[in-house]
Design a protein around this nucleic acid. Structure first.
Length: 473
RNA sequence: GUCCCUAUCGUCUAGCCUGGUCUAGGACACCAGAUUUUCAUUCUGGUAACACGGGUUCGAAUCCCGUUAGGGACGCCA
Protein backbone atom coordinates (compact mmCIF):
# COMPACT_ATOMS: atom_id res chain seq x y z
CA UNK A 1 0.00 0.00 0.00
CA UNK A 2 1.42 3.32 -1.09
CA UNK A 3 1.48 5.89 1.70
CA UNK A 4 2.75 9.40 1.10
CA UNK A 5 2.63 12.56 3.11
CA UNK A 6 2.67 16.31 2.81
CA UNK A 7 4.16 17.86 5.91
CA UNK A 8 4.48 21.61 5.90
CA UNK A 9 5.39 23.68 8.91
CA UNK A 10 2.60 26.07 9.81
CA UNK A 11 4.78 29.14 9.58
CA UNK A 12 3.15 30.85 6.64
CA UNK A 13 0.72 30.50 3.78
CA UNK A 14 1.20 27.80 1.20
CA UNK A 15 2.70 28.96 -2.05
CA UNK A 16 3.01 27.58 -5.53
CA UNK A 17 6.00 25.41 -4.64
CA UNK A 18 4.48 23.89 -1.49
CA UNK A 19 1.17 23.18 -3.02
CA UNK A 20 2.69 21.59 -6.06
CA UNK A 21 4.55 19.20 -3.78
CA UNK A 22 1.24 18.46 -2.06
CA UNK A 23 -0.43 17.94 -5.41
CA UNK A 24 2.23 15.54 -6.68
CA UNK A 25 1.98 13.51 -3.49
CA UNK A 26 -1.79 13.46 -3.75
CA UNK A 27 -1.74 12.50 -7.42
CA UNK A 28 0.81 9.78 -6.76
CA UNK A 29 -1.26 8.35 -3.91
CA UNK A 30 -4.48 8.42 -5.91
CA UNK A 31 -2.83 6.92 -8.96
CA UNK A 32 -1.68 3.94 -6.93
CA UNK A 33 -4.77 3.64 -4.78
CA UNK A 34 -2.76 4.66 -1.74
CA UNK A 35 -3.14 7.12 1.11
CA UNK A 36 -2.26 10.79 1.24
CA UNK A 37 -1.36 11.98 4.72
CA UNK A 38 -1.28 15.53 5.98
CA UNK A 39 1.11 16.04 8.87
CA UNK A 40 1.80 19.25 10.76
CA UNK A 41 5.48 19.89 11.45
CA UNK A 42 5.15 22.34 14.28
CA UNK A 43 8.27 21.63 16.31
CA UNK A 44 9.45 25.18 15.79
CA UNK A 45 7.36 26.70 18.53
CA UNK A 46 8.46 30.25 17.88
CA UNK A 47 7.20 30.44 14.35
CA UNK A 48 4.37 27.92 14.18
CA UNK A 49 0.85 29.30 14.27
CA UNK A 50 -2.50 27.50 14.40
CA UNK A 51 -3.93 30.06 11.95
CA UNK A 52 -1.42 29.00 9.35
CA UNK A 53 -2.29 25.35 9.84
CA UNK A 54 -5.94 26.22 9.25
CA UNK A 55 -5.15 28.30 6.21
CA UNK A 56 -2.96 25.59 4.73
CA UNK A 57 -5.65 22.94 5.11
CA UNK A 58 -8.21 25.34 3.73
CA UNK A 59 -6.09 25.98 0.64
CA UNK A 60 -5.50 22.28 0.13
CA UNK A 61 -9.19 21.48 0.32
CA UNK A 62 -10.01 24.36 -1.98
CA UNK A 63 -7.84 22.76 -4.62
CA UNK A 64 -9.41 19.38 -4.14
CA UNK A 65 -6.30 17.88 -2.58
CA UNK A 66 -8.08 16.09 0.24
CA UNK A 67 -6.04 14.25 2.89
CA UNK A 68 -6.95 10.67 3.77
CA UNK A 69 -5.34 11.08 7.15
CA UNK A 70 -4.40 14.11 9.18
CA UNK A 71 -5.52 16.31 12.05
CA UNK A 72 -9.30 16.38 11.74
CA UNK A 73 -9.29 13.81 8.93
CA UNK A 74 -8.96 10.63 10.96
CA UNK A 75 -6.43 7.85 10.43
CA UNK A 76 -4.83 5.15 12.54
CA UNK A 77 -1.38 6.70 12.77
CA UNK A 78 -2.15 9.83 14.74
CA UNK A 79 -1.72 12.20 16.28
CA UNK A 80 -0.70 14.03 13.12
CA UNK A 81 0.58 17.16 14.79
CA UNK A 82 4.18 16.79 15.85
CA UNK A 83 3.69 18.97 18.88
CA UNK A 84 1.40 16.19 20.13
CA UNK A 85 3.97 13.45 19.54
CA UNK A 86 6.75 14.71 21.78
CA UNK A 87 6.71 11.57 23.93
CA UNK A 88 7.34 9.40 20.89
CA UNK A 89 10.35 11.47 19.91
CA UNK A 90 11.72 11.47 23.45
CA UNK A 91 11.61 7.68 23.51
CA UNK A 92 13.26 7.44 20.12
CA UNK A 93 16.06 9.78 21.16
CA UNK A 94 16.55 7.89 24.42
CA UNK A 95 16.94 4.70 22.45
CA UNK A 96 19.39 6.23 19.98
CA UNK A 97 21.54 7.43 22.88
CA UNK A 98 21.37 4.06 24.63
CA UNK A 99 22.45 2.30 21.48
CA UNK A 100 25.33 4.69 20.95
CA UNK A 101 23.91 6.34 17.81
CA UNK A 102 23.59 9.71 19.50
CA UNK A 103 25.10 11.57 22.41
CA UNK A 104 24.62 14.54 24.68
CA UNK A 105 26.69 17.36 23.29
CA UNK A 106 27.72 20.13 25.65
CA UNK A 107 29.08 22.46 22.99
CA UNK A 108 27.05 25.64 23.13
CA UNK A 109 25.29 27.40 20.30
CA UNK A 110 27.64 30.34 20.77
CA UNK A 111 30.71 28.17 20.35
CA UNK A 112 29.33 26.69 17.14
CA UNK A 113 28.50 30.13 15.86
CA UNK A 114 32.05 31.27 16.53
CA UNK A 115 33.44 28.29 14.63
CA UNK A 116 31.16 29.16 11.77
CA UNK A 117 32.32 32.79 11.73
CA UNK A 118 35.95 31.76 11.73
CA UNK A 119 35.40 29.41 8.86
CA UNK A 120 33.70 32.14 6.90
CA UNK A 121 36.48 34.61 7.62
CA UNK A 122 39.04 32.13 6.33
CA UNK A 123 36.84 31.26 3.37
CA UNK A 124 36.72 27.68 4.48
CA UNK A 125 33.63 25.56 4.28
CA UNK A 126 32.25 24.90 7.72
CA UNK A 127 31.00 21.85 9.42
CA UNK A 128 30.89 20.87 13.04
CA UNK A 129 34.08 19.12 14.14
CA UNK A 130 32.32 16.72 16.52
CA UNK A 131 34.39 17.93 19.45
CA UNK A 132 31.49 17.26 21.81
CA UNK A 133 31.99 13.55 21.24
CA UNK A 134 35.22 13.48 23.20
CA UNK A 135 34.62 15.71 26.20
CA UNK A 136 36.01 14.24 29.42
CA UNK A 137 33.76 13.58 32.39
CA UNK A 138 35.40 16.49 34.13
CA UNK A 139 34.74 18.89 31.29
CA UNK A 140 31.14 17.80 31.08
CA UNK A 141 30.70 18.31 34.81
CA UNK A 142 32.24 21.74 34.51
CA UNK A 143 29.92 22.73 31.71
CA UNK A 144 26.91 21.35 33.56
CA UNK A 145 27.91 23.45 36.54
CA UNK A 146 27.87 26.52 34.32
CA UNK A 147 24.26 25.69 33.55
CA UNK A 148 24.89 24.50 30.03
CA UNK A 149 22.17 22.18 28.81
CA UNK A 150 23.22 19.62 26.22
CA UNK A 151 21.81 19.23 22.76
CA UNK A 152 21.66 15.71 21.40
CA UNK A 153 23.71 15.04 18.32
CA UNK A 154 23.52 12.11 15.94
CA UNK A 155 26.81 10.35 15.45
CA UNK A 156 27.79 10.04 11.81
CA UNK A 157 29.78 6.85 11.49
CA UNK A 158 29.46 5.74 7.90
CA UNK A 159 29.62 8.87 5.81
CA UNK A 160 29.52 7.30 2.36
CA UNK A 161 25.93 7.08 1.22
CA UNK A 162 24.05 6.41 -1.95
CA UNK A 163 20.55 7.68 -2.50
CA UNK A 164 18.46 5.98 -5.14
CA UNK A 165 16.20 8.81 -6.11
CA UNK A 166 13.04 8.01 -8.04
CA UNK A 167 13.51 11.09 -10.18
CA UNK A 168 17.27 11.60 -10.31
CA UNK A 169 18.61 8.11 -10.14
CA UNK A 170 21.69 7.32 -8.13
CA UNK A 171 23.20 10.19 -6.13
CA UNK A 172 26.31 9.68 -4.02
CA UNK A 173 27.28 11.68 -0.96
CA UNK A 174 30.24 11.83 1.34
CA UNK A 175 28.93 13.35 4.54
CA UNK A 176 32.49 14.02 5.69
CA UNK A 177 32.73 16.95 3.37
CA UNK A 178 29.19 18.10 4.05
CA UNK A 179 28.34 18.11 7.72
CA UNK A 180 29.42 17.00 11.15
CA UNK A 181 27.29 15.23 13.74
CA UNK A 182 23.93 16.91 13.52
CA UNK A 183 21.50 17.89 16.21
CA UNK A 184 18.40 15.80 16.76
CA UNK A 185 17.31 17.46 19.98
CA UNK A 186 17.83 21.06 20.90
CA UNK A 187 19.14 22.20 24.25
CA UNK A 188 15.59 23.19 25.15
CA UNK A 189 14.51 19.57 24.77
CA UNK A 190 12.63 19.94 21.47
CA UNK A 191 13.47 17.41 18.79
CA UNK A 192 14.57 18.75 15.40
CA UNK A 193 13.25 18.29 11.90
CA UNK A 194 15.59 15.46 10.90
CA UNK A 195 14.62 13.33 13.85
CA UNK A 196 10.88 13.90 13.79
CA UNK A 197 10.63 13.41 10.05
CA UNK A 198 12.28 10.02 10.18
CA UNK A 199 10.51 8.85 13.30
CA UNK A 200 7.16 9.86 11.86
CA UNK A 201 7.77 8.55 8.36
CA UNK A 202 8.75 5.23 9.91
CA UNK A 203 5.85 5.04 12.34
CA UNK A 204 3.32 6.28 9.84
CA UNK A 205 4.60 3.66 7.42
CA UNK A 206 5.33 6.17 4.69
CA UNK A 207 6.46 4.31 1.58
CA UNK A 208 7.48 7.22 -0.66
CA UNK A 209 8.87 10.58 0.32
CA UNK A 210 8.16 13.05 -2.46
CA UNK A 211 9.53 16.47 -1.61
CA UNK A 212 11.40 19.42 -3.02
CA UNK A 213 14.95 19.18 -4.28
CA UNK A 214 16.04 21.41 -1.43
CA UNK A 215 15.81 18.27 0.70
CA UNK A 216 18.06 16.17 -1.49
CA UNK A 217 21.12 16.93 0.61
CA UNK A 218 19.22 16.07 3.79
CA UNK A 219 18.49 12.62 2.50
CA UNK A 220 21.80 10.97 3.50
CA UNK A 221 21.20 12.11 7.07
CA UNK A 222 17.73 10.66 6.95
CA UNK A 223 19.00 7.39 5.53
CA UNK A 224 21.39 7.10 8.47
CA UNK A 225 18.61 7.93 10.89
CA UNK A 226 16.29 5.29 9.47
CA UNK A 227 19.07 2.76 9.80
CA UNK A 228 19.79 3.69 13.41
CA UNK A 229 16.09 3.65 14.18
CA UNK A 230 15.94 0.13 12.86
CA UNK A 231 13.36 1.16 10.31
CA UNK A 232 13.11 0.44 6.64
CA UNK A 233 13.73 3.60 4.68
CA UNK A 234 11.04 4.85 2.32
CA UNK A 235 11.84 5.55 -1.31
CA UNK A 236 12.72 9.11 -2.19
CA UNK A 237 11.79 11.33 -5.06
CA UNK A 238 13.07 14.89 -5.18
CA UNK A 239 11.05 17.32 -7.24
CA UNK A 240 12.74 20.10 -9.17
CA UNK A 241 12.12 23.47 -7.61
CA UNK A 242 9.75 26.06 -9.04
CA UNK A 243 11.06 29.55 -9.55
CA UNK A 244 9.11 32.76 -9.67
CA UNK A 245 8.94 35.19 -12.56
CA UNK A 246 12.40 36.17 -13.65
CA UNK A 247 13.84 33.07 -12.01
CA UNK A 248 13.60 34.29 -8.45
CA UNK A 249 13.41 31.86 -5.57
CA UNK A 250 9.99 31.13 -4.15
CA UNK A 251 9.45 31.77 -0.49
CA UNK A 252 6.61 32.09 1.96
CA UNK A 253 7.15 35.80 1.89
CA UNK A 254 6.65 36.12 -1.84
CA UNK A 255 3.01 37.17 -1.85
CA UNK A 256 2.50 37.02 -5.59
CA UNK A 257 2.70 33.22 -5.60
CA UNK A 258 0.87 32.50 -2.35
CA UNK A 259 -2.26 30.42 -2.53
CA UNK A 260 -4.12 33.38 -1.10
CA UNK A 261 -3.08 35.50 -4.05
CA UNK A 262 -4.17 32.90 -6.59
CA UNK A 263 -7.55 32.55 -4.95
CA UNK A 264 -7.91 36.30 -4.86
CA UNK A 265 -7.24 36.57 -8.57
CA UNK A 266 -10.05 34.19 -9.28
CA UNK A 267 -8.47 31.08 -10.67
CA UNK A 268 -10.44 27.87 -10.83
CA UNK A 269 -8.93 25.40 -8.37
CA UNK A 270 -8.65 22.63 -10.93
CA UNK A 271 -7.14 24.95 -13.50
CA UNK A 272 -4.45 25.85 -11.01
CA UNK A 273 -3.88 22.19 -10.26
CA UNK A 274 -3.70 21.48 -13.98
CA UNK A 275 -1.13 24.20 -14.50
CA UNK A 276 1.00 23.14 -11.54
CA UNK A 277 0.97 19.51 -12.60
CA UNK A 278 2.48 20.52 -15.93
CA UNK A 279 5.21 22.46 -14.15
CA UNK A 280 7.81 19.73 -13.99
CA UNK A 281 5.68 16.85 -15.18
CA UNK A 282 4.44 15.97 -18.62
CA UNK A 283 2.16 13.16 -19.74
CA UNK A 284 4.34 12.30 -22.72
CA UNK A 285 1.73 13.33 -25.26
CA UNK A 286 0.21 16.62 -26.37
CA UNK A 287 -2.63 16.77 -23.87
CA UNK A 288 -2.50 19.91 -21.78
CA UNK A 289 -5.96 20.36 -20.36
CA UNK A 290 -6.71 17.87 -17.62
CA UNK A 291 -9.42 17.46 -15.03
CA UNK A 292 -8.24 16.47 -11.59
CA UNK A 293 -9.45 12.93 -12.24
CA UNK A 294 -7.52 12.75 -15.50
CA UNK A 295 -4.42 13.93 -13.71
CA UNK A 296 -4.79 11.17 -11.15
CA UNK A 297 -5.07 8.62 -13.89
CA UNK A 298 -2.15 9.92 -15.95
CA UNK A 299 0.29 10.95 -13.26
CA UNK A 300 3.56 9.08 -13.21
CA UNK A 301 6.55 9.99 -11.05
CA UNK A 302 8.88 8.61 -13.70
CA UNK A 303 7.80 11.36 -16.07
CA UNK A 304 8.69 14.15 -13.69
CA UNK A 305 11.51 16.24 -15.10
CA UNK A 306 14.81 16.94 -13.43
CA UNK A 307 15.28 20.64 -14.10
CA UNK A 308 13.59 23.51 -12.33
CA UNK A 309 10.80 25.46 -13.98
CA UNK A 310 9.84 29.10 -14.00
CA UNK A 311 6.27 30.00 -13.18
CA UNK A 312 4.53 31.69 -16.12
CA UNK A 313 1.37 33.57 -15.12
CA UNK A 314 0.38 34.10 -18.77
CA UNK A 315 0.08 30.42 -19.41
CA UNK A 316 -1.83 29.98 -16.18
CA UNK A 317 -4.28 32.65 -17.35
CA UNK A 318 -4.71 30.92 -20.68
CA UNK A 319 -5.27 27.59 -19.01
CA UNK A 320 -7.76 29.06 -16.59
CA UNK A 321 -9.65 30.51 -19.56
CA UNK A 322 -9.72 27.06 -21.14
CA UNK A 323 -11.20 25.55 -18.00
CA UNK A 324 -13.64 28.43 -17.67
CA UNK A 325 -14.98 27.83 -21.17
CA UNK A 326 -15.37 24.12 -20.53
CA UNK A 327 -17.75 24.81 -17.65
CA UNK A 328 -21.50 24.60 -18.19
CA UNK A 329 -23.28 27.94 -17.91
CA UNK A 330 -24.65 26.84 -14.58
CA UNK A 331 -21.25 25.80 -13.22
CA UNK A 332 -19.70 29.01 -14.45
CA UNK A 333 -22.28 31.17 -12.70
CA UNK A 334 -21.94 29.19 -9.49
CA UNK A 335 -18.16 29.42 -9.43
CA UNK A 336 -18.25 33.09 -10.30
CA UNK A 337 -20.79 33.79 -7.58
CA UNK A 338 -18.75 31.85 -5.04
CA UNK A 339 -15.73 33.93 -5.97
CA UNK A 340 -17.58 37.22 -5.72
CA UNK A 341 -18.95 36.25 -2.34
CA UNK A 342 -15.56 35.13 -1.09
CA UNK A 343 -14.09 38.43 -2.17
CA UNK A 344 -17.00 40.35 -0.73
CA UNK A 345 -16.84 42.70 -3.67
CA UNK A 346 -20.48 42.42 -4.76
CA UNK A 347 -23.70 43.55 -3.21
CA UNK A 348 -25.90 42.87 -6.18
CA UNK A 349 -28.73 40.41 -6.04
CA UNK A 350 -27.66 36.89 -7.04
CA UNK A 351 -30.73 36.28 -9.23
CA UNK A 352 -29.97 39.07 -11.64
CA UNK A 353 -26.26 38.44 -11.34
CA UNK A 354 -26.57 34.86 -12.47
CA UNK A 355 -28.11 35.90 -15.80
CA UNK A 356 -25.54 38.58 -16.32
CA UNK A 357 -22.59 36.37 -15.47
CA UNK A 358 -23.35 33.99 -18.30
CA UNK A 359 -22.57 36.78 -20.76
CA UNK A 360 -18.94 36.83 -19.70
CA UNK A 361 -18.05 33.18 -19.76
CA UNK A 362 -15.95 33.43 -22.89
CA UNK A 363 -14.81 36.96 -22.26
CA UNK A 364 -12.72 36.60 -19.13
CA UNK A 365 -9.73 34.54 -18.08
CA UNK A 366 -9.96 35.15 -14.35
CA UNK A 367 -12.82 35.96 -12.03
CA UNK A 368 -11.13 39.11 -10.82
CA UNK A 369 -11.99 40.62 -14.20
CA UNK A 370 -15.66 40.28 -13.32
CA UNK A 371 -16.23 43.35 -11.13
CA UNK A 372 -15.03 45.56 -13.97
CA UNK A 373 -17.15 43.72 -16.52
CA UNK A 374 -20.22 43.88 -14.31
CA UNK A 375 -20.16 47.64 -14.37
CA UNK A 376 -22.60 47.43 -17.25
CA UNK A 377 -25.23 46.95 -14.55
CA UNK A 378 -24.60 50.43 -13.22
CA UNK A 379 -26.67 53.16 -14.78
CA UNK A 380 -24.15 55.94 -14.28
CA UNK A 381 -21.19 55.76 -16.62
CA UNK A 382 -19.11 57.88 -18.97
CA UNK A 383 -19.22 57.37 -22.72
CA UNK A 384 -15.94 56.29 -24.25
CA UNK A 385 -16.83 58.01 -27.50
CA UNK A 386 -18.72 61.23 -26.76
CA UNK A 387 -18.48 62.55 -30.30
CA UNK A 388 -20.41 59.54 -31.50
CA UNK A 389 -23.07 60.16 -28.89
CA UNK A 390 -23.51 63.78 -30.01
CA UNK A 391 -23.82 63.02 -33.70
CA UNK A 392 -27.21 63.75 -35.26
CA UNK A 393 -27.40 60.26 -36.75
CA UNK A 394 -26.97 58.80 -33.29
CA UNK A 395 -29.62 61.01 -31.74
CA UNK A 396 -32.01 59.93 -34.43
CA UNK A 397 -31.42 56.29 -33.52
CA UNK A 398 -31.89 56.95 -29.82
CA UNK A 399 -35.16 58.80 -30.38
CA UNK A 400 -36.44 56.01 -32.58
CA UNK A 401 -35.41 53.40 -30.04
CA UNK A 402 -37.30 55.20 -27.30
CA UNK A 403 -40.44 55.34 -29.40
CA UNK A 404 -40.21 51.63 -30.09
CA UNK A 405 -39.61 50.77 -26.47
CA UNK A 406 -42.54 52.90 -25.33
CA UNK A 407 -44.91 50.80 -27.35
CA UNK A 408 -43.13 47.55 -26.54
CA UNK A 409 -45.52 44.70 -25.79
CA UNK A 410 -43.67 41.54 -26.79
CA UNK A 411 -41.74 38.99 -24.72
CA UNK A 412 -38.61 40.25 -22.96
CA UNK A 413 -36.62 37.57 -24.77
CA UNK A 414 -37.52 39.21 -28.09
CA UNK A 415 -36.32 42.58 -26.92
CA UNK A 416 -33.11 42.65 -28.91
CA UNK A 417 -34.45 41.08 -32.11
CA UNK A 418 -37.58 43.22 -32.08
CA UNK A 419 -35.79 46.43 -31.32
CA UNK A 420 -33.32 45.95 -34.13
CA UNK A 421 -36.01 45.06 -36.66
CA UNK A 422 -38.11 48.07 -35.81
CA UNK A 423 -35.10 50.36 -35.80
CA UNK A 424 -34.11 49.29 -39.25
CA UNK A 425 -37.53 50.37 -40.49
CA UNK A 426 -37.33 53.77 -38.82
CA UNK A 427 -33.78 54.92 -39.48
CA UNK A 428 -31.54 54.80 -42.54
CA UNK A 429 -28.49 53.65 -40.55
CA UNK A 430 -27.40 50.06 -40.79
CA UNK A 431 -24.38 47.91 -40.02
CA UNK A 432 -21.73 49.58 -37.96
CA UNK A 433 -23.35 52.97 -38.02
CA UNK A 434 -26.43 51.47 -36.42
CA UNK A 435 -24.89 49.11 -33.87
CA UNK A 436 -22.08 51.32 -32.74
CA UNK A 437 -24.32 54.08 -31.35
CA UNK A 438 -26.59 51.50 -29.72
CA UNK A 439 -23.65 49.85 -28.02
CA UNK A 440 -22.37 53.19 -26.84
CA UNK A 441 -25.74 54.28 -25.47
CA UNK A 442 -26.38 50.98 -23.69
CA UNK A 443 -22.93 50.21 -22.30
CA UNK A 444 -20.85 53.34 -22.73
CA UNK A 445 -18.09 51.24 -24.22
CA UNK A 446 -16.64 50.74 -27.65
CA UNK A 447 -16.10 47.05 -26.98
CA UNK A 448 -18.02 44.56 -24.94
CA UNK A 449 -20.21 41.51 -24.94
CA UNK A 450 -22.78 40.90 -27.66
CA UNK A 451 -25.73 43.29 -27.57
CA UNK A 452 -27.91 40.32 -28.33
CA UNK A 453 -27.09 39.02 -24.87
CA UNK A 454 -26.73 42.26 -22.95
CA UNK A 455 -30.02 43.85 -23.92
CA UNK A 456 -32.41 41.07 -22.84
CA UNK A 457 -30.61 40.73 -19.55
CA UNK A 458 -30.81 44.43 -18.75
CA UNK A 459 -34.50 44.55 -19.66
CA UNK A 460 -36.72 47.12 -21.26
CA UNK A 461 -36.79 49.66 -18.44
CA UNK A 462 -33.04 49.86 -17.97
CA UNK A 463 -32.53 50.10 -21.72
CA UNK A 464 -35.09 52.83 -22.02
CA UNK A 465 -33.41 54.77 -19.25
CA UNK A 466 -30.12 54.52 -21.05
CA UNK A 467 -31.49 55.79 -24.35
CA UNK A 468 -33.14 58.65 -22.52
CA UNK A 469 -29.87 59.50 -20.86
CA UNK A 470 -28.12 59.22 -24.21
CA UNK A 471 -30.35 61.89 -25.68
CA UNK A 472 -29.31 64.36 -23.02
CA UNK A 473 -25.64 64.20 -23.81
C1' G B 1 34.44 28.39 -0.41
C1' U B 2 32.86 22.85 -0.16
C1' C B 3 29.29 19.26 -1.71
C1' C B 4 24.98 18.05 -4.70
C1' C B 5 21.53 18.81 -8.79
C1' U B 6 20.36 20.79 -13.60
C1' A B 7 21.10 22.60 -18.86
C1' U B 8 16.14 21.74 -26.03
C1' C B 9 12.37 28.06 -28.83
C1' G B 10 11.54 34.26 -24.34
C1' U B 11 8.49 30.51 -21.04
C1' C B 12 6.40 25.26 -20.03
C1' U B 13 7.91 20.99 -22.48
C1' A B 14 8.28 16.14 -26.16
C1' G B 15 12.43 13.64 -28.00
C1' C B 16 17.58 11.46 -24.47
C1' C B 17 17.46 5.61 -20.95
C1' U B 18 17.21 1.78 -25.90
C1' G B 19 22.31 6.94 -30.93
C1' G B 20 20.06 7.15 -37.51
C1' U B 21 12.81 7.94 -38.66
C1' C B 22 14.90 15.30 -35.73
C1' U B 23 15.79 19.99 -42.24
C1' A B 24 13.99 18.86 -33.49
C1' G B 25 7.30 18.05 -32.31
C1' G B 26 3.43 20.49 -29.10
C1' A B 27 1.67 24.57 -25.91
C1' C B 28 1.84 29.80 -23.86
C1' A B 29 3.35 34.53 -25.48
C1' C B 30 4.32 37.34 -29.98
C1' C B 31 3.30 38.56 -35.41
C1' A B 32 0.06 38.00 -39.85
C1' G B 33 -4.57 36.38 -41.98
C1' A B 34 -9.78 34.28 -41.80
C1' U B 35 -14.49 34.12 -39.05
C1' U B 36 -17.46 37.14 -35.66
C1' U B 37 -21.56 44.07 -37.97
C1' U B 38 -17.33 45.59 -31.65
C1' C B 39 -14.17 43.00 -28.24
C1' A B 40 -13.41 38.07 -26.81
C1' U B 41 -13.87 33.06 -28.56
C1' U B 42 -12.62 29.90 -32.80
C1' C B 43 -9.58 28.64 -37.13
C1' U B 44 -5.12 29.03 -40.45
C1' G B 45 -0.12 30.40 -41.09
C1' G B 46 4.64 32.52 -39.28
C1' U B 47 9.11 34.02 -36.18
C1' A B 48 11.85 31.26 -32.50
C1' A B 49 15.84 26.28 -29.33
C1' C B 50 19.52 21.20 -28.90
C1' A B 51 24.72 26.46 -23.60
C1' C B 52 30.04 25.90 -25.20
C1' G B 53 34.46 22.76 -26.18
C1' G B 54 36.47 18.07 -26.75
C1' G B 55 35.84 12.78 -27.33
C1' U B 56 33.32 7.84 -28.77
C1' U B 57 30.87 6.42 -33.46
C1' C B 58 29.91 5.38 -40.31
C1' G B 59 26.41 8.63 -37.66
C1' A B 60 25.21 12.47 -31.39
C1' A B 61 19.92 16.77 -29.11
C1' U B 62 20.60 11.64 -27.56
C1' C B 63 26.63 8.22 -24.77
C1' C B 64 31.49 10.05 -22.07
C1' C B 65 34.74 14.07 -20.22
C1' G B 66 35.60 19.17 -19.38
C1' U B 67 34.06 24.38 -19.28
C1' U B 68 30.38 27.86 -18.47
C1' A B 69 25.79 29.21 -16.50
C1' G B 70 21.64 28.56 -13.19
C1' G B 71 19.68 26.31 -8.79
C1' G B 72 20.04 23.81 -4.04
C1' A B 73 22.49 22.43 0.59
C1' C B 74 26.18 23.60 4.13
C1' G B 75 21.20 26.03 11.16
C1' C B 76 20.16 24.21 18.48
C1' C B 77 14.68 26.44 10.73
C1' A B 78 11.67 23.05 8.29
Amino acid sequence: MVRVRFAPSPTGYLHLGNIRTALFNFLFARHHGGKFIFRVEDTDRERSRPEFEKAQIDDLLWMGVVPDEGPGFGGDFGPYRQSERLGIYRDAIRKLIDQGHAYDCYVTEEEVEEMRQNARAEKRSFHFDNRGRSFSQGEIAQRKAKGIRPAVRFKIENPHLEVHDLIRGKVSFNLDDMVGDFIIQRADGMPTFHLVVCVDDARMEITHVIRGEDHLSNTPKHLLLFQALGAESPQFGHLPLVQGEGGQTLSKRLDSVSMRAFRGKGYLPHALANYMALLGWSPGNDQEIFTLEELQRAFDLGRVGRSSAIFDPQKLDWMNGEHLRRLSGEEFAESALRYLEEQGSMDLNPGLLKNVLAIFQDKIERFDQLPEALKILQDEFDYEDEALMKADESKMIFRAALEILDEWSKEPSDLYQGLVEELKKKVPAKGKSLFHPIRMAVTGRVHGPELKRVIPVLGRDKIKGRFRRALQI
